[in-house]
Design a protein around this nucleic acid. Structure first.
Lengths: 336, 336
DNA sequence: CTGTTAGCGCTTTCAA
DNA sequence: TTGAAAGCGCTAACAG
């Protein structure tokens, strides 16, 4: 048994020599080709073991179109919602045998462009992106001009039609408002209005349509910010007005939890005196007191679906564009 | 302006031809070599722009030792703690210009081995691993036999000395117990004892040593499981005993939150009737009611440190092994 | 300062 | 069923 000196890696040629065959034959063994005789295959396999051979995909990629890598570009990895999404992508990848680069744009379009560029240099087979707030179309247009398979998640860039995974927010909000109405609430306010991306707009318009449809009078929405704060003063004014709300549906769980805390400061108990419903079902929602009723937006499932969609696109680049819509689940707990 | 047909990517040779120079010169421009004349550089740069050239690192990597990629193998990406850690790694990588593969072992040593194998095939420059429970030494021995730079985080494999980032749990627990004693608690129980990995053992022994050192009588620990459950029946028996505990320090925040919920069921209010302290400071801790006092284990900082350590190891493979210990922070809220 | 040449480790015709 | 030869896109060593 000979081992190459200096940690230099053993190549297919080494294996071939060791097994007494040509490089081409060894290559066929590598890829389980039926063309090679069982005995030869065995010899080669043994040589690989003996030398501790590691397949060099980098080299193989030079000759093939696919690299078996994809890129996942998120607007904020630290957010538990996105980590669940990542887990979903990872799960699908583990099944398909590809491996995933992760990148964090931190809501910066510049950083996002840099990351995507870097991923392209690494020859990823495709990209899953949750676009940073303020992303412009040009980058994405370039991506599909180049024919790089690409799936958008959650947020849609305007004037764009491509593979896309999103959540049927309207359905979730409809379920939530139905529940509120059934439990006697009549004045539901929406907290966390912001016009930053399609998901935020979809949530608000889901509320508006549900109100119309359930015969509830919509109230003016309370503004929110992209870092999950909301206009507490405006909320206070509304609570002190002559016709205060009796319940709230919030842009996300983080805002909902803040609202509950604020209500407590005002001596109101969420669930009894005022109903609060969040969105996303982050781990903190189940741990809060009272536990937060919320609309679960199924991040793991979103990630899994996006990875599958990307795989399909990579396999057939010209297939028609597909939009997958994940059904949310209404999670009834104690805050509403 | 000519564009290659069929989405075939433009190579450095195309650029060189377009600019009227040789491939080698173009390559130098690519890497900002001072050897090339300003005018030539400009010509080449323009040609790159014109053709929409994308640097192919895969090809470059065939000639160089480094690929500018690292692998991050975690035991559970969906856990918010690890997503914060990932964000830290990403941050360091963004600075150093490398890019990060992410893999999830899901606490399965087999899956972990498969993922690491896959990453090696992609020629990663190094690996950051939080070993799955039950990992055996062989895989890791092989990794450093091959001289693949490698940093362990949080959990230590027995009989091993290599680059390692961990948290000074003992110091955090000491601060927590000091606080409990100062606020009049005398009987502190440890909840979540499990002998699964070094971090779990370090947390329990931190409790034992702090008790000794602060003159508190240690109580028999309540058992926990790796999926963050604990032996509630045993806890009940202890509460009903003749000498019940007046406070608890828990293996992690998840267990601590469950303990608070259980106390409430028994009519006890955390913070007033019984003190509860968690560990890690996950987002849910701040959102709980009462808000959870905890020992923040700084996951982002851990990830950042690990990435830096790995970078140093990659740069100088023979440097002496380094262990970095992150200082935790005691976060005083309302549960204790 | 720029060009020539020789590979990196693999896959892929094509021929034997 | 196996082998020889060419080449993927780049960098490194050397010569000019």
């Amino acid at each position: 048994m000979k081992i190459k000196a200096g940690g230099a890696s053993v190549s297919l040629l080494d294996v071939a020599r060791e097994a007494g065959v040509s490089r081409a034959t060894a290559s066929l063994v590598l890829r389980d080709s039926p063309l090679v005789a069982a005995a030869t295959r065995e010899k080669v396999r043994e040589a690989m073991m003996r030398l501790g051979y590691i397949y060099n995909r980098g080299a193989a990629n030079l000759r093939q179109k696919r690299t078996g890598t994809i890129g996942l570009v998120l607007s904020n990895i630290a957010n538990p919602f996105f980590s669940a999404l990542t887990a979903g992508v990872e799960q699908a990848n583990d099944l398909s045998g590809s491996v995933c680069f992760i990148a964090n744009s931190g809501e910066s379009p510049e950083r996002q462009a840099r990351q995507i560029q870097r991923l392209r240099e690494h020859n990823v087979d495709g990209l899953i992106v949750c676009p940073a707030i303020g992303s412009d179309n040009r980058l994405f247009e370039e991506i599909d001009r180049l024919g790089l398979p690409f799936v958008q998640v959650l947020r849609e860039i305007p004037d764009t039609t491509r593979d896309y995974v999103t959540v049927d927010y309207a359905a979730g909000i409809d379920a939530a408002l139905s529940h509120l109405r059934a439990s006697g609430r009549k004045r539901v306010v929406y907290i966390g209005d912001m016009d930053v991306h399609s998901a935020a707009r979809a949530r608000l318009s889901g509320y508006e349509r549900a109100c119309a449809h359930l015969n509830l009078t919509p109230m003016p929405a309370i503004a929110g910010t992209r870092d999950s704060q909301y206009d507490e003063a405006a909320f206070d004014r509304l609570l002190d007005s002559t016709s205060p709300p009796d319940s709230a549906i919030c842009y996300n769980d983080i805002i909902a939890l803040a609202v509950m805390t604020h209500l407590r400061r005002r001596g109101l108990e969420a669930g009894r005196d005022f109903s609060v419903i969040g969105m996303d079902d982050i781990p903190a929602a189940g741990a809060a007191y009272p536990t937060l009723t919320t609309i679960a937006t199924m991040p793991t499932r979103i990630g899994f679906a996006a990875a599958r969609l990307l795989e399909k696109r990579i396999a057939r680049p010209t297939r028609r564009v597909e939009q997958e819509v994940i059904a949310p689940e209404f999670v009834l707990r104690h805050s509403a």
